[in-house]
């Protein structure tokens, strides 16, 4: 019953899709991270006026599905003639950029929430000690709060990276031939849903395995000071 012949003859298509998936996820993660940092810092502010906009951003992007966000950007933007006739249409015209924007904004929301949590978890003793040493606020953030924040955020952020990888499959819905898009083409051309999707699943599994390995390595390094020592 199984027909893996068509899968083998279409492996190049899967690799092309894999490459698109990796590009989209990597760029979205980098953009999203740099967007998330200021959002998280503002969200931990004591000033309520500074706190409300970043908190609303986090609330919105965590509160709506990625697919809905992507459709709003891809189909929604195409609806308005003013946008279609303006310069920014160069970006919104391409499904690829629409997906990237949606992914970056989405992961920024989740990452900001992770960082907000870990910033607030900074032990007060560390801050007190830093102040006693006479550190300025910038130095305090740079040397004490942020390094500890990133370290504590690492396991949760590893999860977010995996979620982003898996979430990126929605790109296949708006004509992008990512890993899932490639599987959809193979399925609809040869009518082999099981084989075509399990192959895509296998690729996702492999990438996830690499991500998990990388984060394990990073955790090992960043938590070096907590390892039991042999004398």
């Amino acid at each position: 019953m199984m027909d893996y012949e068509v899968i083998f003859s279409n492996i190049p298509l899967y690799f092309e899709g894999l490459w698109v998936t990796i590009q989209l996820v990597l760029m979205a993660l980098v953009l999203g991270f740099f967007l998330a940092l200021p959002i998280a810092l503002l969200a931990t502010s004591k000033n309520i006026l500074l706190r409300v906009p970043p908190k609303s951003y986090i609330y919105f992007f965590r509160g709506t599905p990625l697919l809905v966000q992507m459709f709003m950007i891809y189909h929604g933007m195409g609806q308005f003639e003013a946008i279609r006739e303006s310069v920014i249409w160069i970006v919104f015209k391409e499904a690829y950029w629409c997906a990237l924007i949606a992914f970056a904004l989405n992961t920024a929301g989740y990452t900001a929430e992770i960082l907000r949590g870990t910033i607030e978890q900074t032990p007060f003793g560390e801050i007190e000690a830093a102040r006693a040493c006479g550190m300025s606020k910038t130095t305090l953030y740079r040397r004490i709060i942020l390094p500890g924040t990133f370290r504590r955020a690492l396991p949760a952020y590893g999860n977010e990276v995996i979620f982003m990888l898996h979430g990126s499959a929605v790109a296949g819905v708006i004509t992008i031939v990512d890993l899932f898009g490639a599987a959809k083409i193979v399925n609809s051309r040869y009518f082999v849903p099981f084989e075509s999707f399990i192959t895509a699943g296998f690729f996702y599994l492999c990438v996830t395995f690499i991500i998990v390995g990388l984060f394990k390595k990073l955790e090992f390094r960043w938590y070096a000071h907590l390892h039991p020592r042999t004398i």
């Binding site: 189909h75 195409g78 279609r84 499904a95 004509t175």
Partner: peptide, 16 residues
């Protein structure tokens, strides 16, 4: 490649 013909029309109108 689109899942339905309607989606193709939608992107044709959008100028994609």
């Amino acid at each position: 490649r689109y899942g339905t013909q309607d989606e193709a029309y939608l992107d044709a109108v959008a100028g994609r």
